[in-house]
Structure formats: C-alpha cells, structure tokens
C-alpha cells in the first residue's frame, strides 16, 4: 500500500569510474509501500545505482537517504533495514530451507524464538513442509525464488531490493512470485525491483527508466503509455532505450 512517506530519496546521485560516469546526477523519491520498477537498458547504470542505495558502493557526489539513513555515513544501518535478493545470489544451496531461514534470521539479528516462529510459518505458507529438510539445491527454481524472497524480508525491512528476481522462472511461478510482492507491499514493505519482463513493469506503481546513466522518465505505467502513445510498456521501453549510446553492462 503506497503512502506519502518517502523511504528513498536521492539528489543528484552520481558515481564515476575514472572518466566514465556510470550514474549521472539521478534524483528521485520512492514512497513507503510503493512497488517501484527500476528499469533500463543493459549498461544504463542500474546496478551501480542499486549498489549505492544498498550501502555497498560509495557515491562520487550527490546525496541519498535510504530508510532515513545517509548512504555515506550510515551504510551499516541501511543494511539492517533493507532486504536484498537477486537471481544470481539468493540462498545457500547446500543448506536446507530450514537452515537457510535460521541462517538469514540470525544474520538479521532475530532471536531464536522469532526464528522458530517465522520458520514454521514460512514453511507452511510456501507449502514447503515436505521439502523443509532437503537441500535447497534439489528444489525447483520457482520454490527457491519464493523462499529466497521470503528470507530476504524475514526481518520485515522497510525496503527490499529485488534484482531481476524472476529471470528464467516459469510463467505460473512468476505470477505467484508477484503475488508475494503484492502481499509484502500491502504490509508496508517498499519494493524496489528490476526486471526484463515488460508485463511485470505494469505491476509497479511507478517506473523509472534509466538510459545512459540518467533517469529519462519516471511515472506510472499508465501515464508513460499515454505519453508515448504506446499500447504496452515494451513499446515505451523500446522508444526510450533505442537511442542509448552505452551498451556496456
């Protein structure tokens, strides 16, 4: 449920690598409970921007706060108040789902009692009871992704960053995954998500579109489609990204 409370605020946030400006003075606000789609062509600077917002990379200039904390000085506070999940890194495959939950719960500072309660509830909600003590490596990808998301928000963070969370997942599981996202958003968790599936862009409250290090557009999917006289978000994306100079990742 989107509110008016700002949870991410960036002002002219910039990152240079030598003469290369990966992220060039980007300014935007993200609201509490919002599903914010962070889109852009390969090499547009999304990963760099996300790394800065997660407190993993120091900006070259500009300002930003995440969950109320400064991204220069309070990166450890930021890390405690956000969740992160990507397709590339999500769970330890040689641990069981139950062990993964315990591990991440512990990392995020949950008490043993909280971990036990959460663990039972999550395994039930995800229908994982019969698989809870088998190694994650043997789980179907869709279940892994759903479990990874649940683990990323096990500490009820203010914001969760999802970097292409649904890549390669079957169409049914992909939709179930988005239902988990909606539920988290209804509970007030802000969702900051990147995706290459343009139908998923439609599920976001607002979309920002990055091209060559700058934010070219930021609006609701409906407004963007109207502005570009496009029937789908795919067309909007194509219109904006085809002029991109940078093709680096």
């Amino acid at each position: 449920m989107m509110t008016k409370e700002v949870v991410i605020k960036t002002e002219k946030l910039t990152k240079r690598f030598g003469d290369f400006i990966a992220t060039n003075e980007i300014s935007f606000d993200v609201y509490s409970g919002e599903i914010f789609g962070f889109l852009g062509a390969n090499g547009a600077g999304k990963t760099t921007a996300m790394s800065m917002l997660c407190g993993l990379l120091t900006p070259s200039s500009g300002n930003a706060t995440v969950a109320g904390y400064d991204i220069y000085k309070q990166t450890e506070k930021i890390k405690k108040n956000i969740g992160y999940m990507s397709q590339k890194f999500s769970l330890y495959e040689d641990l069981t789902p139950r062990e993964n939950i315990r591990f991440f719960g512990g990392i995020y500072g949950l008490s043993d009692k909280e971990i036990r309660e959460k663990s039972g509830r999550l395994i039930e909600q995800l229908g994982l009871a019969s698989e809870a003590d088998k190694l994650v490596v043997s789980l179907p990808l869709g279940w892994k992704q759903k479990l990874a998301f649940s683990v990323a928000i096990i500490h009820e963070p203010k914001i969760v960053f999802l970097d292409e969370p649904t890549g390669g997942v079957d169409p049914v599981t992909r939709r179930q995954f988005w239902e988990l996202i909606y539920d988290a958003s209804d509970r007030g968790i802000t969702i900051f998500v990147t995706t290459h599936y343009m139908d998923e862009a439609e599920y976001c409250n607002r979309i920002s579109m990055m091209v060559d290090g700058v934010i070219k557009e930021l609006d609701s999917p409906a407004n963007l489609k109207e502005k570009y006289k496009a029937a789908t978000m795919d067309e909007v994306f194509f219109e904006l990204a085809r002029g991109a100079v940078r093709k680096a990742d």
């Binding site: 852009g40 390969n42 292409e164 890549g167 290459h196 795919d234 994306f237 990204a241 085809r242």
Partner: peptide, 10 residues
C-alpha cells in the same frame, strides 16, 4: 537472450 534488454533482444 537471457538477461538481455528488450532492445538488444529485438
């Protein structure tokens, strides 16, 4: 085309 943006995919 996995992980490639829609312009490059086209």
């Amino acid at each position: 085309t996995t992980g490639v943006d829609t312009v490059s995919r086209k």
